[in-house]
Amino acid sequence: MIRIENISRDWKEFKLMNINLEVEDDEYFVILGPSGSGKTMLLELIAGIWYPDSGKIYMNDKEVTLLPPEQRGVGFVYQNYMLFPHKNVFENIAFGLSIRKRKKEEIKTEVEGIMDLFGISHLANRMPRTLSGGEQQRTALARALIIYPKLLLMDEPLSALDRITREELIIEMKGINKKFDTTIIHVTHNFDEALALADRIAILRHGEISQVGDTTEIFRHPKDKFVADFVGVENIIAGTAREGGEKLTVINTGNILIYSVEQKEGNVHMTVRPEDITLSMEKVTTSARNVFKGQVKEIIDQGALIKLNIDVGEPLVVFLTRQSFLDMELNIGKMVWTYFKATAVHLF
């Protein structure tokens, strides 16, 4: 659907360097990056609001690099909605159709249909400033989608909303790409949003794409420490890796030896997801390669889950359900056994 080749642009404090991306038809693609990474500029380049210093953009195999935005058929939704303040909700949504000189009755039917879909029919005559954040964002989505854009670009569309409204909108936005037969590129700094919505994710850092992959790939196998930190991976431990026999790599952290099935040598970072670590009070025999005894250092109640910090020579974060936490009668200072498989240890 859209192919970005070697796009670069240097403007004020923002910089994009050799961006290459390919997004498939009807895909929900999320670009994840911290603020200042150039996410908005990348979207505005795709929309045609700016032109790149170098590189090419193709839509459906047609080059659009220098095409003005009104000829691209791209929808845009901003964080602060950018509703036209002098037009009511109906007129805002109808804007794209009025520009296309569609018949009045036709516009009315279509706008009413889409307002119904987003549950905002009762707001038709309201002015934007009287709407809540969630209502404004639904209006902005409807306004962008009513022209059935081939591509919908969203710049932090949920960041200005409170948590409950955000979760409601995530549910509504899920599958919107299929419903409107549109490809979506959504940029955000919030990993949970990406996790809930994305088919694939790209990580943008300092104007460069550092990893592209589906959600599991990014989550399970962050390519570097930045991605790992950014997507909220726990248990990142540095060490030196060497060949350990039986197709295993052994990582010496300085305090403990950890086994992994991934092949790497030299200075590495390793990570193991907290949910891949099991606990027991007494030592048990399992197939897990990595077995460590450690002391509970910290207990953090996170509601449904309890987060434990266990010192096994290196600090390990482990999650327990509330029930198993109560069953194990854990408290700070207790000694426990931790187990995780060599396949659960990712090296980078």
Partner: peptide, 15 residues
């Protein structure tokens, strides 16, 4: 807000 003009552009309105 210039972004308001940008949105209008993407909706098909010339500059």
């Amino acid at each position: 807000d210039p972004r308001m003009e940008k949105v209008a552009r993407t909706l098909g309105s010339g500059s």
